[in-house]
Design a binder for these strands. Structure first.
Lengths: 202, 202, 202, 202
DNA sequence: AATGAATGAGAATTCATTCAT
DNA sequence: AATGAATGAATTCTCATTCAT
């Protein structure tokens, strides 16, 4: 969507880009995308505004790059959960939710992006980047469970599940909420998939 | 949160306030809260920026007033759904979803507010205003169905349901999606409540 | 090309617009269009940058408005010169050059605009605005002198004359140059038109 | 005005300087001096901004060097035209205009410099560099035609002619304009010089 | 010598809000 | 009450130039 202005060629540049992304993650999560300013990001990254703009053409591009970074991390994470398709679907879903919750709670800057509403085009891109890794893997798991399922249908189920995940995981606002909410999410997803009559959940 | 600066004393003033709120709803829904400008709202309301600030002390107050307006409308609407508690819970939920979906689709300016992420404090207030009418009534219906339920528990169930509603209804983006998604939402909620083992869903 | 953002509705606003244009004329002539800053213009106009942008959407629009202002003034001036078409062409040309030179010397801020090179699109607009009043009137005078002349031809002659005017009048850099250069311009134009064989210059 | 930072010692350095000047000519002619950026020039020259500044101390110096280059080329060109002073003045002028027009049309990057307005001091330097070769040679030709002429007078005549040239040659914007405009320029100059009564134009 | 990263003052422009008429 | 002019801090982004590698 918004590519970087220039790929850093030297190690120094790559380091700087990473620092900027870290700082931006922090600032975005504290103030939100709109209220965050590129100057504050630069200051937090211990660099000059000019350096920031040497690598990113504008604020959107920074957000975009962050989303890509999280998307990659998330994908790697979920691959571990879904690596063996032998486990029962309900277990896979449970593991998915656990992994996602852990990542969510451990990564504060990821949180606002995860439940960002895709209103603007940047936000649409962010939401896509973060949801599609989950959706794809879930979709695959569903089709493994029921090979006869139409792709369009399993995709729809997967999308519904991801929307529910996105909605409920952010309900965890204090550590003591975690268990209760995680349980609820698992129940909700399993119950929903079960109610479709298309899956064998044991 | 932010009260109106002055209650309009005359019918003319009340009309103007309504016009401003209509215009603001439109502008907020088109551009989002942050990107919307008070000047544009004034222009759309065919009034001057000075007049706007005669009724609202700041931008937040406008959003706040809109949220209140929708909250009241929504409450009235849902009261019709939940007026008789004799219907089976699954029917009440189905009716709730139908009513909410109709309102959502018929009120474009309501949409972004309904799925807005409560990032800032204003937004938190808006989300509260819009969710609590639903949550309260659903909570009541749940307790009617199972009088032995702890209030904290039924409130939790209601909250989960509202979060799911807020997440899934916005998936309707084209008219042809409506039926499929509405069905899914109904399934998801009923299946979830059923899975708790606390309710008699008929 | 770049219209004003809003027509001032109150006398106060009209006054402000004029002050801004005066200040901008000065600044543009001192620093050139590129080096001039909107902030400096605002300061010189004893106003705030916000007020400037209330009336003009950007720097270009200011230049545009100035060009229009000069164009109108120039048109009025030349109408006096060309009002009676009875004078011999050489006299009309002489009067034209005198009037233009007087205006040029009396209006320092007009000078850089008059010999501005139409490189960018704004500058093209400026050059057009300032040249066309001269060109049109000269063209008319030429056709009065020789009614049989093709419009395209007389327009070409007029254009050549205006280009020569634009080039030579700026050669006046000190008061003592004036007479010599004005004489030269008159000679050059009359001699050129004479050499075409199309006009009766006495 | 601004000398080069360091005379390139090696052939490789000289080649690089030339490449930079070529790129700069192009960029200046496309965007104008102000809007052109040194970074873009470096990129177009397939080199780095650091290397560029190894040869030129600043942006002005690049423009300056370009002007010098054109000035030398132009001088060589005109020497061929004016080599034998035996031809009638009108023929020499005609040849001068033909040569200049050819060069102008064949050298796009020269065009904006040739009709640039000497607003800033760099631009004044550029204009001088480009005009003086023409002016000197024309001045000499005029004095050869009329040996009794005061130098100050012949210089003035030459200056007027150069200003007219600078103004009219840029009127050629399409190939089909060329002939007509070249004719007009020749007429204008010859007619002007003739009208002074100081020359024998054959 | 060459590369490209770093710098930061400074430019244009916006917009919530207040004030004068 | 109504209008719209006034304000200026704040924001995004640029670019000539220097510096580290």
């Amino acid at each position: 969507m918004n590519p970087m202005r220039r790929k850093p060629q030297q190690a120094r540049g790559q380091r700087r880009v990473n620092t900027i992304l870290d700082a931006a993650s922090q600032v975005f999560s504290e103030l939100g995308y709109e209220a965050a300013t590129t100057n504050l990001i630069a200051i937090r990254a211990n660099t000059s505004i000019g350096s920031l703009y040497q690598f990113f053409p504008n604020k959107e591009a920074i957000l975009s790059a962050i989303a890509t970074r999280y998307s990659v991390q998330l994908g790697g994470l979920l691959d571990k959960v879904f690596d063996s398709y032998s486990a029962p679907l309900s277990v896979q879903i449970s593991d998915l939710i656990d992994a996602l919750t852990d990542y969510y709670l451990a990564t504060p800057a990821f949180q606002p992006l995860f439940h960002a509403v895709p209103a603007s085009s940047v936000m649409r891109h962010v939401a896509d980047s973060l949801c599609s890794p989950i959706e794809h893997r879930l979709d695959r798991a569903l089709r493994v469970n029921n090979a006869a399922l139409e792709p369009a249908v399993s995709q729809f189920y997967a999308a519904i599940c991801v929307y529910i995940l996105r909605a409920l995981i952010p309900m965890i606002r204090q550590p003591e909420d975690e268990e209760r909410i995680v349980e609820a999410v698992k129940h909700a997803l399993v119950a929903y998939l079960n109610s479709t009559g298309d899956f064998d959940l044991r």
